[in-house]
Amino acid sequence: MSTLSDGLSTRTPGARRPGAPGARLRTVGWHALIIGVLALLLYPVVWLLATSIKPTDEILSSLSLLPSRLAPENYSAALDGIAGIGVWRFFTNSLIVAIGAVIGNLVSCALAAYAFARLRFRLRGPLFAFTLLTIMLPYHVVLIPQYTIFQKLDLVGTFVPLILPKLLATDAFFVFLMVQFIRGLPRELDDAAEIDGCGPVLTFRYVILPLLKPALVTTAIFTFIWTWNDFFSQLVYLNDPDSYTLPLALRLFIDQTSESAFGPMFAMSVLSIVPVMLFFLAFQRYLVEGIATSGLKG
């Protein structure tokens, strides 16, 4: 994957004669331009971080990113939570949903992708085409009947409606990602395993699965971050503050009109994006390469 960027970038124009004085100036200008655009782009994130430690009365109007004094009380108020429930509860709920979704997607999408990429069965073409079509399907078309089903099963208000669909490979994006990846693996490996007496199950377990690791990592990271950020389905299915996830808890702040809530609100906002930022810093290469090779949504 790294050879992709290294090998191809050498061909791009605009970097000839790196030693020439004009080129050096152009390079500096290029860096300056990009850093300028980046500063503007990342200002809202920096503003969020700065605001979360500002005293409440400075939050809205003050343009300065630096507070007149630090206000750690925002964070202690955020840790106390909202509606009488501590933030760790929301954090744990978000974590359960996200990890459940990750496990579900990893297992179900890998199994389905192996069948689509390597096994022969009559309906393979039509079924795979159907999978690709469902990428375009708006969630709202299946939402109401799904809700009715979960309502009848008395599961609305639990995490099941948020996790079960992932266990059933409904995230067509990741099936597609893994199919593409498996198709890129040399068939000779399968053949060798076959000669050694492996059936499809063992071939999947000992040949495909270990090689699939990069695609699995990409799937896990994206599933985690998207589920962590997801708001709509959690809003629909979770109705008891005890089962609220972080996005739903943050939303409770909207209804509080007093400005005194702003400090804790932004402190909790920061807490909610910390896992995403950590994932991003740790796995940014996987994320960016994953999106570049498979064209996932952002």
């Binding site: 503003w47 998207w226 943050l250 906002s269 909610s272 994006i273 991003f280 994320l287 960016v288 952002g298």
Partner: peptide, 20 residues
């Protein structure tokens, strides 16, 4: 730079940035 430009796509879909 590529990663830095990509960061808003990950953060921006959440509630926190909408509040900002």
């Amino acid at each position: 730079y590529r990663s830095a430009f990509y960061a808003p796509s990950l953060l921006g879909t959440g509630v926190a940035i909408a509040l900002v």
